[in-house]
Design a protein around this nucleic acid. Sequence first.
DNA 1: TCCTGCCTGCTTGTCTGGCAAGCAGATTTT
DNA 2: AAAATCTGCTTGCCAGACAAGCAGGCAGGA
Lengths: 238, 238
Amino acid sequence: MAEERDIIDRSPSLVEKLAKRLQEDIATGRYRPGAKLPAEQQLCENYGVSRATVREAVGRLKHDGLVVSRQGAGAFVAPSGLPSVFRLDVTDFSDAEEMTHIAELLIAVEAAASELAARRRSPEQLARIREALHAMQRAIDRKEPGVEEDLAFHRAIIEATGNPFFRDLSDFLDQRVRRFIRTARANTARFQGLTQAVQVEHQAIYDAIEAGEGAWARDAAERHLRQAAARLELYLRT
Amino acid sequence: MAEERDIIDRSPSLVEKLAKRLQEDIATGRYRPGAKLPAEQQLCENYGVSRATVREAVGRLKHDGLVVSRQGAGAFVAPSGLPSVFRLDVTDFSDAEEMTHIAELLIAVEAAASELAARRRSPEQLARIREALHAMQRAIDRKEPGVEEDLAFHRAIIEATGNPFFRDLSDFLDQRVRRFIRTARANTARFQGLTQAVQVEHQAIYDAIEAGEGAWARDAAERHLRQAAARLELYLRT
DNA sequence: TCCTGCCTGCTTGTCTGGCAAGCAGATTTT
DNA sequence: AAAATCTGCTTGCCAGACAAGCAGGCAGGA
């Protein structure tokens, strides 16, 4: 049953190779910012592939904002010569080192967000954070792990920063890291006492945000996340 | 000459619309994680487009890690049901609010990185940071703005964290924000005194990293970047 | 001389049809 | 029952085609 289905890496497909090649050509200045790329037909001959392949490769660069195209006119390198999207490639979530690195980034982002939230939160946003905190407590009282409530609490804080970049980045990291924590928590029977500890830390963060104390909020958030990372180690070891 | 070339938005192309639609269908659970997507032929009929269009749309989702495909077997929603890449879309760099938000993120990342660097830097990494600091001083002595040297200094610090995610994210933000600063600096004649002020702040960061004082390095970096943001305001206003 | 409208060639967006490689389940053979 | 084979389906890639749209030139008129 436990069939080892090792997914063989067939990745360097034609499209991928071509896209990478074009990206390099732009990065190294062969195609300069604002310059017109060769026509698709031309690229076909240059690289010896069909037009469909060229189109898909160029389509990816367009998706990343590295090139823009106008029907009838041609495809052009973006004025900045840089992709407009940041790609955070997380290949392997079981890799311990990679998880550590992600956790570091998560801590940095979340701590800074908590500081901003403490300084800027509106009364309504504060109320929403408080409500999430209470929901978390109710989950604990029901003896549930309350991962969704946990996530909602942090989400409410992030939202209070009013900075969409923080929100999007935090969402990305949260959805992955916390989902990891959930499965870990669910597999251990001893989470009851620990989730109450989590709640105490949450309370500290909330108090700081309510008081409008940025530095305090930052410290509380950082402490909480470091503890969470330590707890994760504990879950995994049991 | 000052030709107003407002690029009309023709964007919702067929491919884009289809890609967005599929992404929604995955997000809303119509296609569940790990499930097999309908065959390309099937999707053609479902959405009334040709196979080439379907292929390009699905290709984008593959690029984002949201689906994986195996030749002969089919295309499947990624096990996590989430894209493996984080897309930080910066649409408009002239928008003041958006710049403020990006600057906040940059400060958070760079300050955290400086703290990590102070705690972890190897002697070799410290030497590299010092060398970058000196190069910056030489640029100032030559009465140049030294933006490249400035960038190299921060790059050396980031590198010392040993965390590739910090490096990539910082690179992304740096390349954009600092390029912005460069043009601003170049357009003002009063940068001589100001770059010397920059250097004093750099020195403070370096001293903290050399001493291995994390908290100190964080504060110095944060102070520096806040000053930089303030100077940027000044540049732009003159 | 300068402007205006048309025209022509080129480019991208989309479609159709087709072939090879590869997978998965059913069928046959051992 | 286990192994080998067959068959239908799917993706990867290709060739050719047409419509929509852009840019520069050209001719004619003011």
